[in-house]
Amino acid sequence: MVENRILIVEDNPAISELLEMNFSVAGYRTDHCPDGEEALALLAEDGEFDLALVDIMLPGKDGFALLPFFKERGIPVIFLTAKDDVMSKVRGLKGGAEDYIVKPFEVLELLVRVEKVLGRTGRLQKILTVRDVEIFQESRTVMRGGEEIRLKPLEYDLLVLLARNKNVTFSRERLLREVWGDLYIGETRTVDVHIGQLRKKLGVPGLIQTIPKIGYRLEERG
C-alpha cells in the first residue's frame, strides 16, 4: 500500500511536530522543512508529494513566494497560517492555493480538508487497506479474504471516511455532515444504524470502535 505523502513547510518546530504526529497517526507519510529555501531544495531533489501544507510567514522565502514552485510540479498547496486578514486569504487563494486554514486549527478539520483536497485533485490512494479489508476506490468495491463485501453507497462512504482517517475519532454529527452532507437533516441514530450494518457486513471484530459519548473510530491495530 502506498501512503499519501505530505510536505509540511513550517518554521515553528512545535507546530510541525504536532502536524507530523497527526498525519502519521492518520496514515500519511510526512516530510518537514523549517523554511522556504530548504523546501525548494527538497522539491528539486524529490518532488513526489501529494500535498504541501505551507505556512505563509517563513524565514527566507515566504509562503506566497513558494506557491509557484509547487504549482509547477502540480502539488496542491494548503496554506496553514496565523494571518487571518482577508487580503492574505484572497492573495493565497487567488494565487492558486487549494485551501487556506487559519491557526489555531482543529486537527480533525485539518485532516478532513486535506482529504478533500486530495480527492479533488485525484491524488487519493486508489486502494485502502485496513487489516485484511481492501477498499478499491475506483470500482467502489470492498474485498475481504478474496470475497467481495456488498455495501450500500452510504455504508461504503462511511467506511472510506473512517479508513482514510485511521485512529481518528469522529463524532456522530461530524459523520452525518461528511457522509450525508450539510443539507441532510436527520438524527444521529441514523449513523448508529449504518455503523451497525457496516460492522455486521465486514465481520472484523474491534475494527470500528465505539468511543463513549463521542462517536466512532476505525482502529488499524487490533
Binding site: 515553528n12 512545535a14 507546530i15 504536532l18 502536524l19 504526529m21 497527526n22 497517526v25 492518520a26 496565523a82 491557526k103 489555531p104 486549527f105 482543529e106 486537527v107 480533525l108 485512529n167 481518528v168 475519532t169 470502535q209 463521542i214 473510530r217 482502529e219
Partner: peptide, 20 residues
C-alpha cells in the same frame, strides 16, 4: 499567543480524539 495555543489545542485535540 496563537502558535502556542495552536499547539496546545492541537495536541489536546489529538489526545482526545485519536488512538495514539
Amino acid at each position: 499567543m496563537r502558535t502556542p495555543m495552536t499547539v496546545v489545542l492541537g495536541y489536546s485535540d489529538t489526545l482526545l480524539n485519536m488512538k495514539l
